[in-house]
Amino acid sequence: MKSQHAAPFILAIRRDLLLAARHKTEIVTALFFFVIVVNLLPLGIGPDADLLRKIAPGALWIGALLATLLGLQRLFAPDHADGTLEQMALSPQSFTLLVAGKIVAHWLVSGLPVVLIAPVLGLQFDLPGRSLGLLMLSLLLGTPILSLIGAVGAALTLGVRGGGALLSLLILPLYIPALIFGAGAVEADLAGLGAEGHLSLLGAVLVVSLFFAPWASTLALRVALE
């Protein structure tokens, strides 16, 4: 019984990963965007190592938010345009599960690379080794939240005029808790305070979004398909 439900979920992930593999440039572009945005900050602020170390967590996190936003517009739009989303909504399988599969694939393609490349950028900001690990951990917990909440926004703005700008307007305020707890974890550690509190709160936000976001995205998609 369980495998029956898991099969379409895994197939939805595999499908989106295969499609992403045929559009490799898009993944690379989003990642490159992340690297450039984060690298622009020192150029705007100045090369003071102490200051850079202080702003590093926030800078990397804001870079991650923007990079996620970039990929979100293409989360549902191509499937909406060619009717695949319609077929998914008409599937006897749970639509929510298929949508969840798409969100997981989105994170694997846009969130995970950000987590993996973050330590390199952290080095540029002169972060100590311990903080690099913590930065990765906070991004590992936090980037799925960005994909999950972002999916709701992407579904709500599907096929709407000016979707991209509107998506940012809707989603960025909702990203604030993840930003505060994620960047805060690294900052607290740098300041010599424990990061556990921040990380557990980030985990709690992740659990809440795991619970609500696929369901809310599915509802929003059904509205968009009408």
Partner: peptide
């Protein structure tokens, strides 16, 4: 319908945002 969904998502988030900002 889209507005209603957004308002509900927002109202779940408002306490979390408020708490996180105070924490910050």
């Amino acid at each position: 319908k889209a507005g209603a969904l957004l308002a509900l998502v927002g109202v779940i988030n408002v306490p979390i945002i408020y708490f996180s900002v105070q924490w910050w």
